[in-house]
Design a protein around this nucleic acid. Structure first.
Length: 938
RNA sequence: GCUCAAGUGGCGAAAUUGGUAGACGCGGCAGACUCAAAAUCUGCUGAUAGCAAUAUCUUAAGGGUUCGAGUCCCUUCUUGAGCACCA
């Protein structure tokens, strides 16, 4: 039995005293490797079981890279501004820094207890003035360049928390922290103009080695959409407004416009008659929170303003409505509505009886030369009582169809449909339900030997009664009239036009897809893409619109009415000017307060009157009292680690150039759009300023999964009996076991339930290894029979560490140890090699073996990583599988120099194979070298 | 509703380009050691049938491509994540 407590303490002390993992950042003689963990918020409860997972992953890679001769930067720090420390301060009246320091101490002790190879001399914490000096300095650069600014904007205001929240801190209209209601409110706000970097942030993603899903989340969050601005004049006035649309090709189908209720123009254009209704509606919207707005999103509401807009392409006057389905914050806060080709507009138009004009029709069938054209209908008659549809069955002459026919001169589609149903089936008692979008169909008529291109209207009827008059058929119309269920229709109606029409009638609504334009003058006949381009050309020529790219990404709200954050280094002067502090005045240190709670949503810093009131060049002013959000300090910490004690700049440029980007970054997926986007923006900005050498800070990113309770549910307050505390595991089994087990549980990225028995199994493996080295004196001999498996193990473990597949690396090491047990001994070279392979995962036990068994005085940390001999991996004989018709029927041992024919005949000699091929004709024989023989019989 | 990811034994999971499905571990069963237990070591362990050799079935369900599919294609279901009136 090995004493993990003694051994782990011993080596942790050794690493501390010898500063084993101190990195000389200026040593450029070796290749660099920067392995980074997302630094924790030092809460009062200490590390949970999930923390060590990601930290162990980077630690394993760091330790291997050191042994492979890299100069490794592997730092740790603390994201120490934030709400819990602030609430502690409010409750106790003490300054939060003491609380924070104490928590950092606890965290540090716990991290050391787990044996991570951090260079502790590089520790940073974001609440340390020597750190936030540079956070303020970066803010100042953003301010000077116009990216940090104050704007009047609607914000997410949380009354309970007394602060403004960023979009990603609001979930379903409630605050992420605490779940309190959040309402929209207009306020003057500090923001960072992250949309200015939208294009760079979007393009930068392509080159990154990140999980595809995370890149996709960021792409969606940035939400680029290419479209056009179209300018509408308001009839009878000089007013104009712009709309953003991605579908300017449908402009001929615009039958109304909608302004958001907050739109500037609303009051100016509303007519007297409509004023009361508009005002009431505006009031109703203002009192709705985001939550209520989204909850009600199915049912459209809105009010007509009484005003009309002039469609610039055809000078048609169309009504202007207001509705909260149009958001003030996106695009121009106004839209043109094309109900025929937009679902939301369709719903709205249906509800308020606004006309719908189809300007795009779907194309079915295959075009052909010399087509005749005509207009047709497809009529679908539904019998509600029996849940069946009226069809005609031509049998082998043309299969099953609905009722179809050509529109005669002077006939409307509806009249035609009624006539055709009567002529072909005799049914006359029909109720018209709806007409669906027209389809442009190409087909060949056998009976007439002609190609046709038709415009076809689909019409849906309900059968009112069985009343059936005499049919009026042509001689060649030989078919049966049959009622068919939906299943029969799905399987038997093959004609594309009829299927499509049926689909349209089953879910009536807007036609969203591509097709060719109709009712659109100069766009007629064009597809969507060509029509968009042509329309943009038209708009630009006529000065009433232009191409435009819009982003969903909003400004990053950069101020909180809280105490425990970085002060914003700006003074508001009485004469209206704002000035930013001189570099020499940074850091602007947080003043101590008597009361850390702000009153009625006012920032706590307003209480520090001595600090707030200042004079600049004889002009009185007040300091900004909002502080920066938590995401400020974490947006650049990876740069500070490179040169953490530099007083003159955020980090030495030459060092940044050498060490950036981060080679491996591991952290939870919950930061996909917050921290990971903000960091990228700051780094891109600093890159543009020439301070950082690369635009993208994190080359490779991996998200660790969650460690779930043994009940398969997220650990937490809900099921406290299933919460695993890493301290307990270290106490019982040791840090090496915790590290090994968490890495063995499954793939790093997956969520995995904890299992006490399996953790014990990991400990058993370490015991097994320990005994092999210490108790049984098994080291010695030449053990050539282990040659292959040893080399395989070195190869697999090295590759798996590199690709972060730790679970399979461990499994391979277990296979190796099992083989050694069978062999009863292994030679010193393999024994040493294995200790090195295991070291990154279980550093304490392997240091102990290296020191005591192999009598080394130095740490194993910088020993050379084992190499494998490729030639030892190659087998000289193989077991080949013999398949008959794809099923394994036998196995065959072959040597390397056997010819294909030899293998084939040997395969056929196998008794069990003969049983299956006897009396059958062999159709084919396939030989895959070194893998299998496949015999195909008839 | 839309987008993405995933579904493999009793459990956690393996399976380079399509080529022996279930490596490794947990749990279970048996044996050795022991007065006994624990620990340890050794063997067996997807299901069904059979003394066995072996056969049949089996990677959420159904279909397809292929000599051969966990892997590729289509349809459906389930779970998780993200977005949610983004014009």
């Amino acid at each position: 039995m090995y004493n993990h407590k003694e051994i782990e303490k011993k080596w942790q002390n050794y690493w501390d005293e010898h500063k084993t993992f101190k990195t000389d950042a200026w040593d450029f003689s070796k290749p660099k490797f920067y392995a980074l963990d997302m630094f924790p918020y030092p809460s009062g409860v200490g590390l949970h079981a999930g923390h060590p997972e990601g930290y162990t992953a980077t630690d394993i890679v760091s330790r291997m890279k050191r042994m492979q001769g890299y100069n490794v930067l592997h730092p740790m720090g603390f994201d120490s501004f934030g709400l819990p420390a602030e609430q502690y301060a409010i409750q106790t009246g003490n300054h939060p820094s003491g609380f924070t320091e104490k928590n950092i101490e606890t965290f540090t002790a716990q991290l050391k207890m787990l044996g991570f190879s951090y260079d502790w001399d590089r520790e940073v914490s974001t609440s340390d003035p020597s750190y936030y000096k540079w956070t303020q300095w970066i803010f100042k650069q953003l301010y000077n360049d116009g990216y940090a600014k104050q704007i009047d904007m609607p914000v997410n205001w949380c009354e309970e928390l007394g602060t403004v929240l960023a979009n990603d801190e609001v979930i379903d209209g409630k605050s992420e922290r605490g779940g309190y209601p959040v309402v929209r409110k207009n306020m003057k706000q500090w923001v960072i103009d992250i949309p200015a970097y939208a294009e760079k942030l979007l393009n930068g993603l392509d080159e990154l080695d990140w999980p595809e899903s995370t890149k996709e989340i960021q792409r969606n969050w940035i939400g680029k959409s290419t479209g056009a601005l179209v300018e509408f004049k308001v009839a009878g006035t000089n007013e104009k407004f712009k709309v953003f649309t991605t579908r300017c090709d449908t402009l001929f189908g615009a039958t109304y416009c909608v302004l958001s209720p907050e739109h500037k123009l609303v009051d100016m254009i509303t007519t007297k008659e409509q004023k009361d209704a508009v005002d009431a509606y505006k009031k109703e919207c203002a009192s709705k929170s985001d939550l209520e707005r989204t909850e009600l999103n199915k049912d459209k509401t809105g009010v007509f303003t009484g005003a009309y807009a002039i469609n610039p392409v055809n000078n048609t006057e169309i009504p202007i409505w207001i509705s909260d389905y149009v958001l003030a914050s996106y695009g121009e806060g106004a839209i043109m509505a094309v109900p025929a080709h937009d679902e939301r507009d369709y719903d709205f138009a249906k509800k308020f009886n606004i006309p719908i004009i189809q300007v795009l029709e779907e194309v079915t069938g295959t075009p052909h030369e010399n087509e005749s054209t005509k207009n047709s209908i497809v009529a679908i008659v539904y019998d509600e009582k029996n849940d069946k549809y009226l069809t005609i069955n031509w049998h082998e002459k043309g299969g099953r169809l609905f009722i179809g026919g050509s529109i005669k001169d002077g006939e409307t589609p509806l009249e035609c449909a009624i006539r055709e149903v009567e002529e072909e089936t005799g049914y006359t008692d029909l109720e018209f339900v709806c007409e669906v979008p027209k389809i442009n169909h190409h087909y060949y008529a056998y009976n007439k030997d002609k190609y046709f291109n038709i415009e076809c209207t689909g019409i849906l009827f309900k059968l009112k009664s069985d009343k059936q008059d005499n049919r009026n058929l042509d001689d060649d119309e030989v078919f049966d009239v049959e009622w068919a269920s939906k299943d029969v229709i799905d399987s038997e109606i093959k004609d594309e036009l009829h299927r499509k029409t049926f689909e349209y009638t089953s879910n009536p609504g807007a036609m969203i897809g591509d097709g060719i334009h109709i009712n659109s003058e100069f766009l007629n006949g064009l597809n969507k893409e060509d029509a968009i381009n042509k329309m943009i050309e038209f708009l630009e020529e006529n000065n009433c619109g232009k191409k435009k790219i819009n982003y969903r990404l909003r400004e990053w709200i950069f101020a909180r009415q809280r105490y425990w954050g970085e002060p914003i280094p700006v003074i508001h002067l009485e004469d209206g000017r704002d000035v930013v502090l001189d570099d020499s005045e940074l850091p602007l240190i947080l003043p101590e307060l008597e009361d850390y709670k702000g009153k009625n949503g006012h920032a706590p810093l307003e209480n520090a009157t001595d600090w707030v009131n200042v004079e600049v060049d004889g002009v009185k002013g007040k300091r900004e009292t909002s502080t920066m959000p938590g995401s400020a300090g974490s947006s650049w910490y990876f740069l500070r680690y490179i040169d953490p004690h530099n007083d003159n700049e955020l980090a030495d440029k030459e060092l940044i150039k050498h060490w950036m980007p981060v080679d491996l970054y591991v952290g939870g997926p919950e930061h996909a759009v917050g921290h990971l986007l903000y960091s990228r923006m700051w780094n891109n900005f600093l890159y543009d300023k020439g301070i950082v050498s690369v635009a993208e800070p994190f080359k490779k990113l991996v998200h660790q999964g969650m460690i779930l309770g043994s009940n398969g549910i997220k650990m937490g307050k809900r099921f406290p009996e299933f919460v695993v505390n890493p301290n307990d595991v270290v106490e019982e089994y040791g840090a090496d076991t915790l590290r090994l087990y968490e890495m063995f549980m499954g793939p790093l990225e997956a969520d995995k339930p904890w299992n006490d028995e399996a953790a014990n199994g990991a400990h058993r493996f370490l015991e097994r290894v320990y005994r092999l080295y210490f108790e049984e004196n098994k080291i010695g001999g030449d053990s050539t029979s282990l040659e292959k498996i040893y080399n395989q193990t070195v190869k697999k473990v090295t590759e798996d560490y590199e690709s972060l597949n730790f679970n399979t690396a461990i499994s391979q090491m277990m296979v190796f140890i099992n083989a050694v047990y069978k062999e009863d001994s292994f030679n010193p070279e393999y024994a040493k090699g294995f200790v090195k392979l295991l070291n990154p995962i279980a550093p304490h036990i392997t240091e102990e073996i290296w020191n005591v068994v192999f009598k080394n005085t130095d740490s194993i940390a910088y020993e050379e990583w084992p190499k494998y001999d490729e030639s030892k991996l190659v087998e000289d004989s193989f077991e080949v599988v013999v398949q008959v018709n794809g099923k394994v029927r036998g196995k065959l041992a072959i040597t390397d120099n056997m010819s294909e024919d030899e293998i084939k005949s040997k395969a056929k000699e196998i008794e069990n194979v003969q049983r299956f091929i006897e009396g059958h004709e062999i159709v084919k024989e396939i030989v895959i070298p070194k893998k299998l023989v496949s015999i195909v019989i008839k």
